[in-house]
Design a protein around this nucleic acid. Structure first.
Lengths: 129, 129
DNA sequence: CGCCTGCTTCGATGAACTTCTAATCAAAGG
DNA sequence: CCTTTGATTAGAAGTTCATCGAAGCAGGCG
């Protein structure tokens, strides 16, 4: 497990220090903010990873074994492993080995941060249109 | 203006017909749903496009001229034009030429659809963690 | 110990993406 | 009509990404 596998979140974009209201509509995103937020969306900007996230979220207990996930796709195990790694590096999911199997779960905080960016924007712009 | 520039949305993923609650957590995303949602996130999974979206949203009147957007980046005009095209093809923004300038605005509905996917999921998973 | 199963890493390949320059189109004015 | 300014398209170069097969690692079990 190398150091590059640490999540790329919690790098200091918590809130622009003066952010009162909805991000994306209140004041323009800075170059740094955009550079840290884009990889989060890039992580879920793939049909396979979107379904992986959904499969994990829907699984009972909020956890899913890799073996449960692999069978849902027409892809090889290395490919699924690659996509899980991308999601994990983005901080969207966590994993742990328990005995024979490796389990994955979702990190709601990162998902919430992404939603907080576009959710208020869509609502704020909808009323003024 | 060619036919390929039509938005790729409203292609029939309104709601899975039996969706009662939060997408992503209620039942796993189908292959088709994921295939139509992923390009939406891919469109904003770029620092430049994220900032473009933010700049347009923050601009007074909810509209911004291309000339206003271009000066905010260290990129050439064709590159900005390309990114605006990607956002437009995803249905996230609309545009219109008025005299000399071309104006862009945000389509809140598509943004809302994306938020509706991940927002409820993050909330639902947060309480059970 | 030796093997088997589950999962990940490595290396390669082909497709997609970002960015540029050069050329083109569209509107406005002298 | 020609030129200038604003914006897009076309084509190319360099990079990133998704996917695979082969190899490697980690637990369980006979």
């Amino acid at each position: 497990m190398s150091k590059q596998e640490l999540p790329i979140v919690d790098a200091g974009v918590d809130v622009p220090a003066g952010a009162c209201c909805a991000p994306l509509v209140c004041e323009p995103l800075s170059e740094n903010e955009a550079a840290e937020l884009a990889p989060l969306f890039k992580a879920i900007a793939d049909p396979v990873r979107l379904r992986l996230l959904s499969l994990i979220a829907c699984h009972e207990g909020g956890e899913a074994c890799v073996c449960d996930l692999t069978v849902a796709f027409d892809l090889t195990a290395p490919t699924i492993s690659h996509h899980l790694k991308v999601l994990k590096q983005a901080g969207l999911i966590g994993s742990e080995r328990r005995g024979t199997w490796v389990y994955y779960w979702i990190n709601p905080a990162v998902l919430a941060r992404m939603s907080a960016l576009i959710g208020p924007a869509s609502a704020a712009l909808a009323v003024t249109s």
